[in-house]
């Protein structure tokens, strides 16, 4: 084990896969000379050179298309978006060109590509720079969607994403980049796509979360323990394919579910999990599922309003108490 920040873990994942496979390359805005807008690609230009670490112009739709075309010919691009907010310019290529072509071609054209970058709210950057796209991309058959929390998962899942023969959307979080945790050493370590992780065992209520919301769920669980509520935290890690079995097994044990996400509640990941549990564990529920999500507004700039709009630890505690019928 070695203690790494999420930022270092992501960089190491890319470097290891680029060493192992000459078809893997990184392209995006500021990934080379600048060493990454958030310094995730630190040192990669120096090790791999300008042909494999490519600064692009500010032209998201164009370079997403270029990467996708290169993948159709068998290369394995990692396309970095400075943030997923800017990937809105490129979403046509992610969906129509990358995700659907295998199906439309009857299996003829594969598209092994990773679209990665920070997702969700950062701090005080207002509505256009602060959106969670988990449910947007999670909606699309043909895509795999990953949103890791720990440094180990960031590394292991990014390596799996790069090796995966399908298009993968890899949602990072700017506020997690500096968080440090233990990562298994060595280039053989990977984490399988599509497997959730129970990061805290508990008996009384299941709390699902992903990305930065796992941090908040863990803080909530500590406070809930002091109130006599023993929460089980499921880190979804992968949004698509969703590990429904792990969630269902946990709910069958605790009989209660609180879902957490930073994105908007309408048609969100929590709504999907609610449907899943309704369809497949209805008789196990002792309380209605509760969703903790971002408020249904564009994210405001003012510090107090921003805090109100984003889901907080206290919101998770309130939801957990409600489903446990504790006041």
């Amino acid at each position: 084990m070695v203690a790494l920040t999420v930022r270092e873990a992501l960089r190491d994942a890319m470097a290891e896969e680029m060493r192992a496979d000459p078809d893997v390359f990184l392209m995006g805005e500021e990934v080379a000379e600048y060493q990454g807008a958030y310094k995730v690609s630190q040192g990669l230009l120096q090790e791999f050179g300008a042909k494999r670490v490519i600064d692009t112009p500010i032209t998201e739709m164009g370079f997403a298309g270029v990467g996708t075309g290169a993948a159709m010919m068998g290369l394995k691009p990692i396309v970095e978006f400075m943030t997923f907010n800017f990937a809105m310019q490129a979403i046509d290529h992610i969906l129509n060109s990358a995700a659907k072509t295998l199906y439309m071609s009857g299996g003829e054209i594969k598209c092994p590509i990773v679209f990665r970058g920070p997702n969700g709210a950062a701090a005080r950057v207002a509505a256009q720079h602060s959106q969670c796209y988990a449910s947007w991309y999670g909606h699309v058959p043909g895509l795999k969607v990953i949103a890791p929390w720990s440094a180990a998962d960031a590394k292991g899942l990014l390596k799996s994403a790069i090796r995966d023969p399908n298009p993968v959307v890899f949602l990072e979080n700017e506020l997690l980049y500096g968080q440090s945790s233990d990562v298994p050493d060595g280039p053989d370590f990977t984490v399988p796509i599509g497997k959730a992780n129970i990061v805290r065992q508990g008996r009384d209520v299941t709390i699902t979360a992903f990305s930065i919301m796992v941090s908040k769920a863990m803080q909530a669980a500590e406070k809930l323990a002091a109130m006599g509520i023993d929460a089980e935290i499921v880190d979804l890690r992968t949004i698509r394919p969703l590990d429904g079995e792990t969630v269902l097994a946990s709910v069958k044990k605790t009989n209660r579910l609180v879902t957490c996400e930073e994105g908007w509640p309408f048609a969100g990941i929590g709504a999907e999990l609610s449907a899943l549990v309704m369809e497949r564990a209805f008789d196990h529920l002792d309380a209605p599922v509760m969703r903790v999500a971002g408020k249904d507004v564009p994210l405001p700039y003012a510090a107090n309003l921003e805090k109100m709009a984003l889901p907080q630890v206290d919101d998770i505690i309130a939801a957990a108490k409600a489903v446990c019928y504790k006041t």
Partner: peptide, 14 residues
Amino acid sequence: GAQVALGAGLAFAH
């Protein structure tokens, strides 16, 4: 228009 960026990607692969 999508095929133009994809086609540039095919050229990129070459």
